[in-house]
Write a protein that binds this DNA or RNA. Structure first.
Lengths: 218, 218
DNA sequence: GTCTATATGAAGATAGAC
DNA sequence: GTCTATCTTCATATAGAC
């Protein structure tokens, strides 16, 4: 069996982990994530992860207690990263059309990105057998985004730019509409990745619809 | 190993299948569906299906070519059944508030039913490795419902009760909003099954929001 | 920490008797 | 069609050397 030559572990450094180990750790996490995305949790084997990461299986087990923990750690971590990236700078002070537009464009591209779709599939599939994973994903992902949007809406209400009775409910309507046209067909592989212009058009339409309901200057 | 006593197959009847065989077929399909819902595709074994159906594994293979086909057949069949049940009688002629209300209440209870949620998880999880399954589910399920709703909206536009520019887009907005508050948390197991009254309130809110945008008498 | 080698158990699928 | 028994492959996880 081929594998790269192995230097002996370097001396342990400040953090308590050798450089060597850190690199293997990254290899393992990346390989595992790639394979989980491609084959799902059950169909991904520890053998395949070791092969893809170019380490031995025993090394994989040295870095992760078992397959479950490897999986949950990776997926939760990536989900938080991705959903945390929704850009909201200055959204409270901008004109509502602009704030909502920017938010909508970011969000729709986020949820249609291949990585976000892959994570969505994994979490939806495994949540019943791994409730903690479902909880972490939901709270750090969709729920966090919803709450941030609700906060923006509330700020816009205070400045008189919007007229929203229930910011949380309105935020859920807004995000629901943004899923509308593309999310499910893409997740199911029925539609390919839509071109950016089409996404922007869809986002703009949702913003216009939303402002017809909650815009305060009509 | 325990199993029920086996009578020899009864004489073949009109349809070409013995009663005996039809019963085992039902046992197998039901058992497989239960297990797929509970454990997902990969983690469900043919051994377990045979055990749960109280037949031998060879009998399972006599009724289904392999695990893939057993799975796809069951899931697609149940999905079509469930989504086909959305009640739309007379929706074109009723007042738009009533038509949309009835539709919304049915739809939101449909997508939150345990069986629909289970199928959703299975299809989302396996669609990348089984594109045909994703396509069939989408077309017979969500897409069919969306188109029926769009047709209702169009009829309401013709009678002057609604003012919708793009019935398909509006239908997608409506259905997206109906997913909004409950669908994801329930699919992820973060929230339990909400009580019916709460679902009705949520449905009513969406209808009101929708009519603020597309109602023609304001 | 990292490797090779292996223990242990199941998986999907089929053979062959009835 | 249905069973029991089995083939073959491969899974998760660990032991033991370095």
């Amino acid at each position: 069996m081929l594998h790269s030559h192995n230097d002996p572990p370097a001396a342990v450094e400040a953090g308590g982990l050798s450089r060597y180990s850190e690199q293997k750790r990254r290899q393992i996490l990346q390989a595992a994530f790639r394979l989980f995305l491609r084959h799902g949790f059950e169909a991904t084997t520890m053998d395949a992860i070791a092969r893809e990461a170019d380490v031995s299986k025993a090394t994989v087990y040295a870095h992760a207690k078992n397959k479950q923990e490897l999986f949950a750690g990776i997926v939760a971590g990536r989900a938080a990263l991705i959903y945390g990236s929704v850009e909201l700078q200055g959204a409270e002070s901008a004109a509502p059309e602009d704030a909502l537009s920017r938010f909508a464009r970011h969000f729709i591209q986020l949820i249609l990105s291949p990585e976000a779709q892959g994570i969505y599939r994994l979490v939806v599939a495994e949540a019943p057998r791994n409730p903690e994973l479902g909880r972490i994903f939901f709270e750090q992902g969709p729920r966090a985004v919803t709450q941030r949007l609700a906060a923006i809406l509330e700020a816009q209400v205070r400045t008189g730019h919007l007229n929203v009775d229930d910011p949380l409910a309105a935020a859920q309507e807004f995000l629901g509409m943004l899923h509308g046209k593309f999310h499910l067909p893409c997740v199911l592989g029925v539609a390919g990745q839509p071109p950016v212009e089409e996404l922007e058009r869809a986002a703009e339409r949702v913003v216009r619809t939303f402002l017809k309901v909650y815009g305060s200057m009509r």
